[in-house]
Design a protein around this nucleic acid. Structure first.
Lengths: 188, 188
DNA sequence: TGAACCTGGATGATGTGTCAACTATTCCCG
DNA sequence: CGGGAATAGTTGACACATCATCCAGGTTCA
């Protein structure tokens, strides 16, 4: 039970401090459980999944409720084929529909349907309640602030420097010549 | 871009405070990106995935490197069919093997193979480096402590009370008569 | 104009997670 | 002992994510 995730302390490599290791294990468990719980809640008391929800949010967030496929990919940090497949499934269920772009023959829009709008409007309140109950009702104001700062710092690290090059895959097709000396991101 | 995740502020339901909303959006983005990054790193510079890794850790953590399937499920908070499928795939790749339990004819053990051991030993150092570089190098000692406490509080909420009943699915087969008045977990 | 290249997007194969059955064994209790 | 319930685990169908590949429509430039 001790040293659960990484039994290789100080044998193999510079490892985490005990406090870091405790924090990491706590975070990993929490995050896994929270994701599972939010997904389950969403699909139990509404007809859509968390990923459907994310897509629908982007659409409702846009004035004319239509977004280009790749733009969606960039907002969500998904890769384009994921969007493509997912939109296809959502289209089959009537949540969105596709329309081709007149000004660019290659492009197409994803457009919110009435069914899609009512689906997200039905799902949102319960989701909000859940997040509040599971997360914010447990935390002090200071902790909320800390959570934001911690998240922001890590996110910044993930989206700058060499890490950004990998993430940029969703903008470009080719591996784009990442100059990584064996190991890529970690050793900055 | 504002109000990205939940555009239904104060229209529909008691919603999150602005600071909570900012924190939530930051957390969600960070967590998604971090997961993606850790998975990619693991599968790029080793032959196993994060989930393989999790299973192998449990095995190496056990004295005789063999664990019962359901015990594995409980440790990892996975459901049993997920374990079953995943172990089947790992067995196909030679990372583990199955052995039937002599004392209980129904049961079976998952046993670490030499290949499995060398796979995790090869993967662990780079993973450790990555976690340190992406997460802990960004955080002060106070933030590490805060991260642990925040995670612990949320995790506790997730695994006690009515929420626990849902999670307990991995211990029992039946839906176990969860007494939830329309909505389940959130409204405590 | 047309050849090389780039971009937006779709598609198919494969690996993974979830749900709902299902089988086989063991346990409980008369 | 015998029969029902619980337990351990598997299986199949389906939704989803990723990767590599493909293709049609644009762009650049000679």
């Amino acid at each position: 039970m001790m040293c659960q995730l990484f039994p290789y302390a100080e044998q193999v490599t510079r490892w985490l401090e005990p406090e870091q290791q405790r924090a990491w294990r706590a975070y990993v468990r929490m995050q896994g459980e929270l994701n599972a719980h939010l997904s389950r809640q969403m699909s139990v008391d509404s007809e859509i999944s968390m990923t459907d929800f994310a897509v629908l949010v982007q659409l409702t967030d846009t004035p004319d409720e239509r977004v280009r496929v790749l733009e969606l990919a960039r907002f969500l940090h998904w890769e384009k084929s994921r969007i493509s497949h997912h939109v296809a499934r959502m289209e089959k269920r009537g949540l969105v529909r596709r329309e081709n772009c007149r000004s660019d023959g290659r492009g197409s829009f994803v457009v919110l349907t009435d069914l899609g709008r009512s689906a997200i409007e039905a799902a949102a309140p319960a989701h909000a309640e859940t997040v509040r109950a599971l997360v914010f009702d447990q935390l002090s104001d200071a902790e909320v602030k800390a959570l934001e700062e911690i998240s922001e710092k890590i996110f910044t690290r993930l989206t700058t420097g060499e890490c950004a090059a990998v993430i940029a895959r969703c903008d470009a097709d080719d591996p784009m010549e990442v100059v990584s000396e064996e190991g890529g991101c970690p050793e900055a």
